[in-house]
Simulated assay, not measured.
Amino acid sequence: MLTLLTYPSAFGLFSASPFCVKTALMLQTSGQRWQRSDLLDPRKMPHQKLPVLRTPQRLIPDSDLIRDWLEAQGSDFDHGLSDLQKAQSRALIRLAEEHLYFQIVQDRWANDEVWPILYKTFFTGIPALIRKPVANSIRKNVVKGLGFQGVSRFSDAERKDRLERDLEAISAYLWQSTYLMGETPTSVDMSVAPMLAAMRATPANTPLTQRIKQDKLLSDYIDRMEQAIPLS
């Protein structure tokens, strides 16, 4: 049996990480037998991050590499799509994973309103004596990484403008069909929907969570995906 090494469930989602949710969705539709194993510290993993798929032969890091492996075993997450649709799918996946994701990280880790909740959610396993300095050090490194990536260098208004353009692009597809590439979920939905769900699930009433909750088109899409591919 395959084992998905994943961050634990949080905020009502299969995992706090949309990349872990993406991988779980792929596994659920692959026909492979699999189980989850929760981790909070990925430092011993191949890329020092999650998700990681444990197969009988080896550990496979990264959701894209896991997808490649599953497809090599016979899965087809884009069945019936044209070459143009597959290219559009690839572009939307990059939009979600290289831009929307960092909006989520900014909204959670750099937000003083959300941080106390993250602290209680993710760091309880650390001994009390060192918990606060370890947690603060990790937070500092995450926020520093947002500066390197660039999202934290923009003002709130600039970030909102960039986000709106992405959400408008996603919405343009959803006005045309039930899912992004048609009437059944494909690989792009398994990337985009978890990102939107993570935005909506952040445990504070931030402008980002409000933006998704108040958008019926996007919220209904998140709900449809959760119903179409349920994760236990």
Rank of each mutant, 00 (worst) to 15 (best):
G31T: 08
G31A: 07
G31F: 08
Q32E: 15
Q32W: 03
Q32F: 10
R33H: 13
W34K: 06
Q35I: 00
R36Q: 12
S37L: 12
S37Q: 15
S37Y: 11
D38H: 02
L39H: 13
L39I: 15
L39D: 02
L40F: 12
D41M: 02
P42V: 03
R43N: 08
R43M: 10
R43F: 03
R43W: 06
K44T: 14
P46C: 04
P46D: 02
P46Y: 03
Q48C: 04
L50Y: 01
P51C: 06
V52N: 05
V52M: 09
V52P: 06
L53F: 03
L53H: 04
R54T: 00
R54G: 00
T55C: 04
T55P: 00
T55S: 12
P56S: 05
P56T: 08
Q57D: 15
R58N: 07
R58G: 01
L59F: 12
L59V: 01
L59Q: 11
I60V: 15
I60H: 04
D62Q: 05
S63L: 09
S63P: 09
L65Y: 02
L65Q: 13
I66Q: 06
I66E: 03
R67T: 11
R67L: 13
R67Q: 14
D68A: 04
W69D: 01
W69G: 04
E71R: 01
A72R: 12
Q73H: 09
G74C: 05
F77I: 07
D78G: 02
D78T: 10
D78I: 07
H79G: 00
L81C: 08
L81P: 01
L81D: 07
S82I: 00
D83T: 13
D83A: 15
L84C: 03
Q85A: 12
K86Y: 02
A87S: 13
A87L: 12
Q88L: 14
S89M: 07
S89D: 09
R90C: 10
A91F: 12
A91G: 00
L92Y: 06
L92C: 07
L92I: 10
L92A: 11
I93F: 03
R94Q: 14
R94G: 00
L95E: 11
L95G: 01
A96R: 06
A96M: 05
E97C: 05
E97Y: 05
E98I: 00
E98F: 04
H99N: 13
L100W: 07
Y101V: 01
Y101W: 09
Q103F: 14
I104T: 14
I104F: 09
I104R: 11
I104C: 14
V105W: 07
Q106A: 14
D107H: 04
R108Q: 12
R108C: 11
A110Q: 13
D112P: 07
D112Q: 14
D112V: 08
E113C: 10
E113Q: 15
V114G: 01
